[in-house]
Design a binder for these strands. Structure first.
Length: 688
RNA sequence: GCCAGCUUAGCUCAGUGGUAGAGCAACGGUUUUGUAAACCGUCGGUCGUCGGUUCAAAUCCGACAGCUGGCUCCA
């Protein structure tokens, strides 16, 4: 089973099979992932968008990762221009405080700006912000003019050699090392310029505002470390993030919005509403679904399952581990070793090796080479599903075969990347694998996209971005027939158009095994997360030698499609909590109705109301606490219970309920049976 | 993983070298209440863990664990 030659994915040794992260369009200021040389698992819900810089495909990146042309720079918006200037003002201020700082780069970003710099004998902390801001405001008051000067490459190099670039004056013995490197990166023939404000001169293509007085509505937001050029083999720099606006009012509004966003953070709401927990004793990145969160997940899964039944899927169940050989065949082990939990050696072999005083290194090497056998916590579900497909010979008449499972997978995320429900080490994909003929690929893709659209529309999530990853037309690293690729890519493109939402086509970003389409959504702090995905795969059927008998009575290789409309239940639920700010639609709410008797006098009728709600299969409770009605309402509001039924003596006499909705307020008195019928309908139709 | 910041009662937080605090929650009682907090009382903490400095540590130092943010939007 173990391939003699390196698996295909090793042979290609190209970054293209990593999920892309470099080609986000002008995206969030706070990146979803750090740059890394780790190999991250492909297919559904990649643990990160991480992929190493890809020299071989750089020229095909046509988005933000490609060097901006001077024309593009000139199109910088007014706000970006202001913020870019603020980065220079911040550099000026920092140099006045720490003259030996070496600056690397300082661009405007979506919500502000930052500057990366090396400062050997001081670590910036938030305590320094006040001082730096005060100095920045001073620079703004001095109203320095930003002056552009076009210089020759030689002159630029000379300025950098003397420490003048990114400095307030010449700094012998302190060459502008990063600027020198950046100068070397400017293509031959491109204009080189520097900008000066006051004493500060920086290598810069601009553009800038005219005077530093524009840069007074600023606030420093965060300090962090970064690697020069994002490469963890390069020196580590300090980065200070700031934000800036044209007016003080806009700045205040922005800061206010950030506060509001924090209140919607799924980690905060998850705790407040008791939806999920992460427990130190259980482990980092391992989500515990609390009873209320479990209700939401169960409702979502029921919803998906219903859609699957309608659209011809078969649901399956598979175990959480599989033999290492399975993943050697699939190519995941040991190639993606870095992203997996360590292999579990076979019990008896493990004991024998221990008796032989075998070292850990021997054990690891044995597992890797295949000399020793063992198991792996599954990093993805496809190999199991493939073996289900292969249980019986298939005819073209059997295709497509659609196997779905809420399958839990395990991935070894670096500790620094874990957080909330959006980046975890164990998560459940709403996974499915479709096995079809090459001719069926287009129709199947459309089917998948329809499902994704149904899901997102039902939940009112319309603010997402679609990314179509296509192959690099000049590369030969791809698996599968180019004609089939053309068809699959066209099908993906048509599907994206059909969806009617903004999408980007990204040539060169397809995995080596097939093109794909991803759904990307932003969280409350502006970070982008990949949710749903549909990926065509020509590779795994090859590696597992899958086949079916065609109409021509000969063997053919099926094509696989991986797809997950939610991505993972964890990440999706996290995003959903923020999307609704905890106010879930009634069908998803852990508690749908709370009955609030005004006093003990009304408790008998209130109990009857509760019984009827429960009989109608609604999730309802009764609040018999000795609180006043205002307090009961407040509690129910804070817990985001969508319907509150106030029951007093009037209501009891009329067999009616006084309805209050958590978002719509007091809806007045209604007959109980009428309210009940409407509510059952609202839940059944999954209304928003 | 790396850099920075943080970790005090179930929750939100005060306390910066000298006997651990508040509000909310919980619990007990009084109140029987009409659309976002009735009143009184009680309980609750080896100040993340381990080690060090000191007559004395929540407070200073170190290690570890966990949490949060960041780790090329390209001069």
């Amino acid at each position: 089973m173990v391939p003699d030659s390196p698996p295909v994915i090793i042979a290609t040794d190209s970054p293209a099979h990593h999920p892309p992260r470099r080609n986000l369009p002008p995206g969030p200021s706070l990146r979803p992932a750090r740059p890394t040389r780790r190999r991250t698992l492909p297919h559904i819900h990649p643990p990160s968008f991480s992929s190493p810089p890809s020299p071989s495909t750089t020229r095909f990146h046509h988005m933000s990762n490609e060097r901006k042309t001077l024309d593009e720079r000139a199109q910088m918006s007014d706000l970006e221009r202001l913020r870019h200037s603020c980065a220079h003002v911040m550099a000026t201020a920092i140099l006045r405080l720490w003259p030996n700082a070496q600056f690397a780069y300082g661009p405007p970003v979506e919500s502000g700006f930052y500057y990366d710099f090396d400062l050997p004998n001081h670590r910036i902390t938030p305590d320094d912000f006040e001082t730096i801001e005060a100095e920045m405001k001073k620079v703004a008051r001095e109203n320095q003019k930003f002056e552009k000067r076009i210089i020759s490459r030689e002159e630029a190099r000379a300025l950098a050699e003397s420490g003048r670039l990114g400095g307030l004056g010449e700094r012998p013995d302190n060459r502008s090392v990063f600027k020198l490197d950046l100068i070397d990166k400017i293509p031959e023939g491109e204009e080189i310029s520097c900008y000066q404000n006051g004493d500060f001169i920086d290598l810069c293509a601009g553009p800038h505002v005219n005077y530093t007085s524009k840069c007074k509505n600023i606030k420093l937001m965060a300090v962090s470390s970064s690697y020069y050029l994002g490469d963890d083999s390069k020196p580590q720099l300090q980065r200070v993030y700031g934000t800036a606006f044209a007016t003080p009012e806009e700045l205040a509004q922005h800061l206010h919005n950030l506060e509001e966003a924090k209140k919607r953070d799924h980690r905060r709401l998850g705790k407040e509403l008791q939806l999920f927990a992460v427990d130190e004793k259980v482990g980092q990145g391992l989500i515990l679904w609390l009873p209320k969160g479990a209700v939401i997940r169960q409702q979502l899964q029921d919803f998906i399952s219903e859609e699957l039944r309608k659209t011809g899927y078969s649901q399956v169940f598979t175990p959480h581990i599989g033999k290492l050989d399975l993943y050697r065949t699939s190519g995941h082990f040991p190639y993606y070793k870095e992203s997996q939990f360590a292999a579990i050696p076979e019990r008896d072999q493990f004991q024998k090796l221990a008796d032989e005083k075998c070292s850990c290194a021997d054990l690891a090497a044995g597992l890797e080479s295949g000399e020793l056998d063992g198991y792996l916590l599954k990093p993805m579900n496809c190999p199991h599903h493939i073996r289900i497909f292969a249980q019986s010979p298939k005819s073209y008449r059997d295709l497509p075969v659609r196997l779905a499972e809420f399958g839990t997978v395990y991935r070894w995320e670096q500790s620094g990347e874990l957080g909330g429900m959006t980046r975890v080490r164990a998560f459940t994909q709403d996974d499915a694998h479709l096995f079809c003929t090459p001719e069926q690929v287009g129709a199947e893709i459309i089917g998948c996209l329809k499902l994704v659209k149904t899901v997102l529309t039902t939940l009112g999530m319309n603010d997402y971005r679609v990314r179509v990853s296509l192959r690099d037309p000049d590369s030969s690293k791809y698996v599968g027939d180019p004609a089939n690729w053309d068809k699959a890519e066209e099908a993906l493109r048509q599907a994206a158009i059909w969806l009617g939402v903004p999408f980007t086509e990204e040539p060169g970003e397809a995995a080596f095994y097939g093109p794909k389409i991803d759904f990307v959504i932003k969280d409350v702090i502006g970070r982008e997360w990949q949710l749903g995905t549909v990926q065509v795969d020509y590779n795994l059927p090859e590696r597992f030698e899958l086949e079916y008998i065609g109409a021509d009575n000969t063997k053919h290789r099926p094509v696989m499609i991986h797809r997950a409309p939610f991505g993972s239940m964890e990440r999706f639920t996290g995003v959903l909590i923020e999307h609704f700010a905890g106010h879930f639609p009634t069908w998803l709410s852990p508690e749908q109705v709370r009955v609030l008797p005004i006093s003990e006098k009304s408790e008998v009728f209130a109990s009857e109301v509760l019984a009827q709600l429960q009989a109608a299969n609604l999730r309802a409770t009764l609040d018999t606490a000795p609180d006043k009605i205002g307090a009961k309402i407040r509690n129910a509001q804070l817990e985001r219970v969508p319907y509150m039924l106030v029951i007093g003596e009037k209501e009891a006499a009329l067999q009616s309920v006084s309805v209050r909705h958590a978002k719509r307020g007091d809806l007045g008195v209604r007959p109980l049976d009428e309210f009940l019928a409407d509510l059952v309908q609202e839940v059944a139709s999954r209304s928003l």
